[in-house]
Design a protein around this nucleic acid. Structure first.
Ligand SMILES: NC(=O)c1ccc[n+]([C@@H]2O[C@H](COP(=O)([O-])OP(=O)(O)OC[C@H]3O[C@@H](n4cnc5c(N)ncnc54)[C@H](O)[C@@H]3O)[C@@H](O)[C@H]2O)c1
Ligand SMILES: NC(=O)c1ccc[n+]([C@@H]2O[C@H](COP(=O)([O-])OP(=O)(O)OC[C@H]3O[C@@H](n4cnc5c(N)ncnc54)[C@H](O)[C@@H]3O)[C@@H](O)[C@H]2O)c1
Lengths: 222, 222
DNA sequence: GGTGTATCGAGAAAAAAGTATCGATACCGT
DNA sequence: ACGGTATCGATACTTTTTTCTCGATACACC
């Protein structure tokens, strides 16, 4: 296998879906609900009930027939199972358009992520303060960062070089937004966040759908 | 099956990888290379050669034993197979931090995407010009948009309502960055671009790795 | 030209992911 | 209290995806 399918004993596909259940559950909780069934959640997330239950099967929880799952228990079990119950610190490198957007993103608090430092090399960036975080020069990045994770939003051309520097500084996980594939020692965990993939799937689906429509029409009027 | 695994006859997982092959191939071309083997590409993208070849098998191309694939043919075949060879127009709704970043993103030209209109409701946004696109009020969005695709970057609370409005205006594909699940008529194609998923996978992998390290150490010194 | 070898590509096998079935359980209304 | 029913969850099954095997092919070098 090229790269592991599982995290611990949980399939990655399940982890991905769990990440989408969580905000939905929190929202329900906010609305005063305390119990949810797999079918409820499935409807809300455009999934099948079976899949939701199967996913929950990987967590240490049990639902109750006829009622469903206690939302509180679900949330706790997820946070426990995936270790999201503590805040992790991260640094961000590349404070351009995207980097700035991420630094301003309020949602991270919800995901237990705290960006505690930002770096760039452009003279007009270094020294500015974005959402309470001062942008430092990349050369000032010492060997003892207060984070294990780095968010990489530099220009694609610098991606590999900067990533290597991050590894030297002790970073063990890189969230890579640059679209470039990083080649690093395999103990470093790389998560590619390539929006081109999403775009490709969407436009491929759109053209496929358009093609179907045309074919359907031409068989209708021969 | 809840939602199709395939686009036309090509598996979605393959489409996703094809999207990552393309920039790598273009980069090679720029560097003057004209031929590449599946093993070459695999190394460059942290994949297995077999997988690359299997993916190529879905396109109408043939490689040559002992040499590999002609890069030009590969690129053409991908663009043909996935209909990326024409520019598609899109509108963007929600010109906040993320929307602004996307409007400024130069990479879309490469992916055949052109954002030809932007909408918001905030008085201080409407009327401004971002990267050559004037921000219009959402109420000005008529029924005859010059685009089939919409990029949705409004605040999560407005996501569902705005999405419904988009559908009424004739949008058939929504690239949804809000993290909220949109419930829309099923003929509308929705592509969720939820960065929380990527973050969840990364942090789960990091904690799993950390746990492994601790266990390894404790077995070392009993 | 012959031999060695890197690479492709078809088909089979293995692994993973998703889906269906069905008995068990707990709630609801009578 | 009792029958009806919604829901869970274990197991079995199906589909999809990934990986392996191996013969065929074309280039390179002698
Ligand atoms: N803007 C988007 O919406 C978007 C979307 C998808 C992907 N991306 C990717 O995200 C990355 C950033 O995009 P962007 O639009 O913010 O670009 P940008 O040009 O606005 O920002 C890049 C930033 O990186 C900094 N930088 C460049 N080289 C550096 C180095 N060696 N060390 C430190 N900092 C360095 C620059 O000074 C700049 O501030 C790019 O790789 C891009 O492909 C952006
Ligand atoms: N900033 C990020 O890095 C980031 C990351 C991941 C996801 N997101 C998601 O992307 C979306 C936008 O994030 P952001 O940081 O740009 O937020 P933001 O608050 O900066 O921007 C939201 C924009 O949407 C506009 N808007 C709100 N309601 C609207 C409506 N009904 N019609 C039209 N426009 C409306 C607002 O005026 C504002 O300009 C959010 O859903 C957020 O969860 C953002």
């Amino acid at each position: 296998m090229a790269y592991g399918y599982k995290i611990g004993s949980i399939p990655i596909t399940t982890v991905q879906r769990l990440a989408t259940y969580l905000p939905a559950l929190r929202e329900m909780q906010r609305q005063g609900r305390s119990i949810v069934s797999s079918a409820n959640l499935a409807d809300m997330l455009r999934l099948e009930a079976i899949q939701v239950r199967k996913d929950f099967g990987y967590l240490e929880i049990t639902g109750r027939p006829k009622t469903g799952f206690k939302i509180v228990e679900l949330i706790e079990a997820m946070e426990r199972g995936l270790s999201w119950n503590r805040v992790s610190d991260a640094i961000l490198v590349g404070t351009g358009h995207l980097g700035t957007a991420l630094l301003n993103y309020r949602g991270f608090g919800y995901h237990g992520l705290n960006i505690n430092a930002a770096f760039d090399i452009a003279p007009d960036r270094v020294g500015t303060v974005i959402n309470g975080v001062e942008v430092q020069h990349l050369d000032a990045m010492g060997g003892s960062l207060d984070a294990a994770m780095a968010i990489l939003t530099v220009s694609p051309e610098s991606a590999q070089a900067v990533a290597e520097k991050l590894v030297q500084a002790g970073i063990t996980g890189i969230w890579n937004f640059t679209g470039r594939t990083l080649l690093l020692p395999e103990q470093v965990i790389i998560q590619d966040q390539d929006i081109a993939i999403g775009l490709a799937v969407l436009s491929a689906k759109l053209t496929a759908r358009a093609r179907e429509a045309i074919e359907a029409e031409s068989t209708l009027r021969p």
